[in-house]
Structures are given as C-alpha cells and as structure tokens.
Design a protein around this nucleic acid. Sequence first.
DNA 1: CTTCCTCCCTGTTCGC
DNA 2: TGCGAACAGGGAGGAA
Length: 275
Amino acid sequence: MPELPEVETVRRTLEPKLAGLKFTAVQILMPKVIKTPDPDQFKEIILDKKIIKINRRGKYLLLHLSEKYTLLVHLRMTGRLTYSEKEAPVAKHTHVIFTLSNGCQLRFCDTRQFGRLWMVPVPSLEELAGFKDLGVEPLDDRFTRDYLKKELRRRHARIKPLLLDQTFIAGLGNIYTDEALHRARINPERLCTTLTPREIAHLYHAIQEVLQEGIENRGTTVRDFIDGNGRAGGYQELLRVYSREGEPCPHCNRPIVRKKVGGRSSYYCPFCQKI
DNA sequence: CTTCCTCCCTGTTCGC
DNA sequence: TGCGAACAGGGAGGAA
C-alpha cells in the first residue's frame, strides 16, 4: 500500500535514473490504467519528451517533462513503477512499458489494476479531479499544530477516517494512520472534536515522526511494495501495531486488536488507546 | 456543505 | 484436500 513514505521512496530511487532521459517508445498493454488522454494521444504526446525531474504530492508521483507536460502516477494499492534493463523479464500484470533513450525501461505494473496514469499540460494540473483538492503536505512547514487544531475543531468525523481523507492531509494511508494514532495514544474511533490540546500536540508530532521514519527506512513492505529498483522497504520491522493483531503492544504488552473503523481495518491497543 | 458506504480488482486466506 | 467466500484497501462517486 504505497503511502507517502513509499511514494517518496519510489521518487528518490527513480529520479537519479530517469532525470535527463527521453521517452523513445511506449507500449500500453492495459489501456484503462491511463485516465487521460486516450492511448493514441498519450503515445503521441510522450514520445521524445525529456524527464526533467520527479516530484511527489501526497501519494501522487509527478514526472515533470519537457514542453510543460506532467506525467502523474498514482500507485493506489499494488501499483509498481520500476526502472529495468529492457532484457529483464516482464512481470505479470505489467500494464505500460516506457522505453527510454538509454535503452532501459520504466515499467508500470499493478496486480489489482487500481493504479492510474495521467498526462496533462502543467496548467491543467489545477483542474485535475482528485489532485486539485489535496490537503496539506504533512512534512511541509505549512502543516502546523495550529492548522491541525483548527481543522479538528471544524470537522465532525472520527479521527481515523479523517486522517485518511486526502483533502484534509495528503499522503496518510492505513498503515501510517494506525501507527500515528498508537504513538499519540488516541483511539481510532474518537470524534475529532473531543481531542484535548495535549492529544492534538501528540498526534501532530506522531504523524511527522512515523512518516519521517518510514522514509528513512525506505517504506513499508507488508506485501507488495517495492521501490523504483525493485527493492523492498524496511519499515515493516518497526511497525508497532499495523498488521500485528494479537501481538503484544510495545508499550503495555497487552494484545493488539483489529477492528473495522470507517470500513478499514484498524490496529490499535485498547488499553493505551481508550475511547 | 458534510460524512459514510459501495465498488472496482486479483491474490491470498479462511471456513466448511 | 478442495472449493467457494471473505478479505485486503485508495479513492471515485453516490447516498444520506
């Protein structure tokens, strides 16, 4: 499940390989993964464009191309974007193969077919549904304790579904949300308006801490995630609650439970994270 | 306006 | 042991 730290890891592994290269060919094996434009136009636009740099916004990767175009990639659940030799065997569920000017390839692969690609002229980014309404970047200076406090006062949701709302904060997913709530000792079902200033402060720091640690450990590989070079992450070893149902809470030793909150599996310690 | 639920998809795990 | 059902989940879109 690529969340902010995983997408950032892909960005960091791909940028040094791709910057300066041009696209010389594209094979679209699964047309539906390209949201815009249609496959023929997509090919026409991308051919001969140069990759200038790669950015990240929330869980989106942005490949900035020459002539003011951006190729956006969202990996959703099982998407993979990898750099490889063109002789390397093509993995099952590979949907798009980009050939580069150095003879190597960039491949988009996605078992569950939820991931999507968009090719847009830079000015159209501001109109792109899903992208234009993204909330604050949690590792940016604009994400302040005060911002969090004010927003939590304004909303009327349970804290976990709210943290997963990309229009609120961009980049958190199920793993890092559960980890942040555990560190802040906040139950995922708590109404956001009931958090005390002290809890809000803890949550603010916990969000930044888990994301930072996730990036430092090159992301979390619970099942599918690999970086741009095909390498798994390392943060799964350091998870305190996520996917650890029945294991002892690292703080109180009581068993971690799993419960659906807002339709998503949530892992937490009922003793440390009381309602 | 808001929040919450369903659906998309395949591989894996669960239960009979 | 075999097989169908349930589950996993990010986000679009629709319901309430």
